[in-house]
């Protein structure tokens, strides 16, 4: 993992390994998964983002360029992760895309209230799923122009 620390572009927060695999595969098809870190729960996600716990040696403020966040997570929920990210001035500018099976209006509304940058519900069909994931990867990594973060 250490090798990946320097240039993480995508932080994938997903507890379901099959979903994670499908997601990574879709990104790989477009060569977007080279600098991807996958964490399996909210607590690990927060450690990574705020350079605590196992990621304590990671320099704070060095990405990722985008966080793909599932909401239904063990330990710390996705919503809590989102809230923490968007309420800290150092992490607030990191784009967060919620990628979840839930189509509940309640979840959508709450996410946007907390400052999510995009909300995408995962289609059941793989073709569509693959297409969606690759599009959003392309968008956030290549099309979107993020602000320069002070070190």
């Amino acid at each position: 993992m250490d090798s990946a620390v320097e240039e993480v572009e995508i932080l994938l927060v997903e507890d379901n390994p099959t979903d994670a695999e499908l997601c990574i595969r879709a990104l790989k098809k477009n060569n977007l998964a080279n600098k991807l870190v996958w964490v399996k729960d909210g607590a690990e996600a927060l450690d990574f983002i705020f350079a605590t716990g196992t990621f304590v040696r990671r320099p704070v403020g060095s990405g990722p360029k985008v966080i793909l966040l599932d909401l239904h997570l063990p330990k710390v929920s996705g919503m809590e992760v989102l809230r923490r990210v968007k309420s800290d001035e150092h992490t607030r500018t990191i784009p967060v895309v919620v990628l979840t099976s839930s189509k509940e209006d309640r979840d959508v509304a709450e996410s946007y209230q907390l400052g999510v940058n995009s909300y995408i519900s995962k289609p059941v069909e793989f073709d569509e799923f693959a297409k969606t994931v690759s599009e959003l990867g392309l968008y956030w990594l290549l099309v979107n122009h993020p602000p320069v973060l002070p070190k």
Binding site: T18, D19, L22, V124, F126, F129
Partner: peptide, 9 residues
């Protein structure tokens, strides 16, 4: 939905 997506995927 998640297992469905896995089956399909």
């Amino acid at each position: 939905r998640t297992p469905l997506r896995a089956i399909d995927g």
